[in-house]
Design a protein around this nucleic acid. Structure first.
Lengths: 214, 214
DNA sequence: CGATCATATGCCGGTGACTGACATTTGTCG
DNA sequence: CGACAAATGTCAGTCACCGGCATATGATCG
């Protein structure tokens, strides 16, 4: 699981990148995203500002690193998915999401949770988070549309519906973790799964509200 | 329809605000959102930068003014909606959106279209647009949740589904307008309605993809 | 009509995110 | 070890944005 088979250079880069994320999350959480300055972050990691911007495209970018990691895994999973049987409904977006979460490295849930907490009190982060999610959506729709031609709209709507459920699940999970933070560590991947199942279970119920039109 | 009944001060303020939006949209479109500078905008309107920031909270804010206008109308419409009959499904989010669009001032569709075109080639604007949409979602869910207690998740999912359809409709409309821009003016509210109907008609079809689970 | 007051605006200086150009260090590999 | 490439640092500059304070300009009332 560790960085075996990597050249020294690559190991160093990985270390720097991780240190930047770690320190950024710590400082942003301690002093607030808007208050903490980038200079403080790079000073803590002993790296120049210029270097920071070679790793991350913006201050927001580093704060959302855990989230981007997840979506990268999600898209990767999507891309190497075998074509589904003809006529069967297109990929279960939700299942792929479970897979992606399950595949994340150890300790990811902690960083992700911190990032989410930050997001909840920082409008600028919400904006960037949603945009990235939208970009992922576009890519996945393009992928899916390649198979089921002419169905892009339905596919997009289905995916966005699932993503809305995902966001709700994460939000609940985050709130729950914050509440029980005093008790134990708080970040629990199983708890996230539970929330996801709960949210996805509500999807068919949406049908009722959509179709019941008097 | 004009600004009758307004004090001179208020009329002046309205003029300045409109001029700022108009000039901003023009300059951003001409030279690009990232390239055009705020100084150019305020110079064109002959206003100080400080004044600009008393009207708009950011560079992005002014570029998305038409969209914010619409969502403000949407929320306002929602707030003064009579409580629906007991047991009936909660508000038709889509119908309220039609109403809101219909209620916009003359020439709004032109500004909105320009703003959308800008959005399509400016990631920073996408981010802000999505965030604002999310904030509106939160407010509406809070409103709706007040009546149908315990159903917040289903309401939220339904609303977000509708919003996804709305975004698709707008995107199609924008593309269509861009294509036919050479021919005539391009901005046509009826065409937008058509796209909205088309998108909303696809909503029940999403059900199929969600419930068909093998 | 003019005095007075509230509000809108302008000016100034500062901060902090981000960038391009160029010099310097540091792994890599023959 | 020596040459090459990749990573990092330095520096100066741009631009969005904000607080504080002075100024101007409608509103209001005697």
């Amino acid at each position: 699981m560790t960085d075996t088979g990597l050249t020294l250079r690559e190991r160093k880069k990985l270390r720097t990148r991780r240190a930047l994320v770690e320190e950024a999350l710590r400082l942003f959480t301690e002093r607030g995203f808007g208050e903490a300055t980038l200079d403080e972050v790079v000073a803590a990691v002993e790296v120049s500002q210029r270097t920071f911007f070679r790793y991350f495209s913006s201050k927001e970018d580093v704060a959302l690193a855990p989230e981007k990691e997840l979506w990268a895994a999600y898209v990767a999973e999507m891309e190497r998915l075998p074509p589904p049987a003809e006529g069967s409904p297109w990929p279960r977006f939700e299942e792929v999401l479970f897979t992606a979460v399950a595949g994340m490295a150890d300790g990811w849930e902690r960083r992700f949770l911190v990032s989410r907490a930050l997001c909840d009190r920082t409008p600028a982060l919400v904006a960037h988070s949603l945009r990235h999610c939208a970009e992922v959506t576009d890519r996945v729709v393009a992928l899916a549309g390649r198979r089921s031609r002419g169905d892009e709209l339905r596919i997009r709507l289905t995916l966005e519906l699932m993503l809305a459920a995902w966001r709700w699940a994460v939000h609940q999970w985050s709130a729950e973790a914050a509440a029980s933070a005093a008790a134990h560590g708080g970040a629990d991947r199983e708890a996230l799964y539970a929330r996801m199942r709960e949210a996805f279970a509500a999807l068919p119920g949406v049908v009722a509200l959509v179709t019941e039109r008097g």
